[in-house]
């Protein structure tokens, strides 16, 4: 069952990710990206990372994608015209990406799966929260500061000059 679910959602993820790149209109790219995020959330759930899967849907598929769609509609960009051509920069980009994929696969092969048993509390909100507020308190506070700076910065950068 896990095998079937993994391949189902893995193929869905890759197809949607390819759709992000191949889509002619930014709106279709954004919609494909939502599909990628949802199927990735399912993959996260297969990895018993339930909390992160929920956060993925809430923050990525919810908040960030709304932001993207808002900006796309605000700018009212047209579609790219004409058929997709095979140009020299595209070939080079494809070769670089293929080379990177080969390097990553070679790097990932030697890892011996430990396949360790997981405790019942693995990935629960309680377990994550307990670690977040003890061991990881300093990074957590740093992230809150980062979000504040980003909020102020976004307003300053995007406001129209009058």
């Amino acid at each position: 069952m896990t095998t079937f679910l993994f391949y189902f959602f893995a193929i869905l993820t890759v197809v949607a990710a390819a759709g992000v790149i191949a889509a002619r209109s930014p709106i279709y790219s954004a919609m494909s990206l939502v599909g990628t995020f949802f199927s990735l959330a399912a993959i996260y759930a297969l990895l018993l990372a339930h909390t992160i899967a929920v956060l993925q849907v809430l923050v990525y598929a919810g908040a960030i994608m709304v932001l993207f769609l808002f900006v796309i509609m605000l700018l009212s960009l047209g579609e790219s015209v004409g058929p997709a051509k095979v140009t020299f920069p595209r070939v080079v980009g494809g070769l670089v990406a293929a080379g990177l994929f080969a390097a990553l696969v070679i790097a990932a092969r030697p890892f011996v799966p430990a396949a360790a048993q997981t405790p019942p509390s693995f990935g629960t909100l309680q377990s994550i929260g307990a670690q977040l507020y003890t061991q990881w308190l300093a990074p957590f506070e740093a992230v809150s500061l980062l979000l504040l700076v980003a909020m102020v910065g976004a307003v300053v950068v995007a406001k129209s000059r009058v």
Binding site: A49, T51, I52, L55, Q56, V59, Y60, A63, I64, L67, F68, V71, T118, S121, F122, G123, S127, I128, Q131, L132, Q135, W136, P139, V143, L146, L147, V149, A150, M151, G153, A154, V155, V157, A158
Partner: peptide
């Protein structure tokens, strides 16, 4: 599940990055 915490921070940083980048 310690590895879930960096993932949490990546999501937070991505949100900040999206806000600034789109601005």
């Amino acid at each position: 599940d310690v590895g879930h915490l960096p993932a949490l921070f990546v999501i937070a940083v991505a949100a900040a990055e999206a806000a600034i980048g789109l601005a």
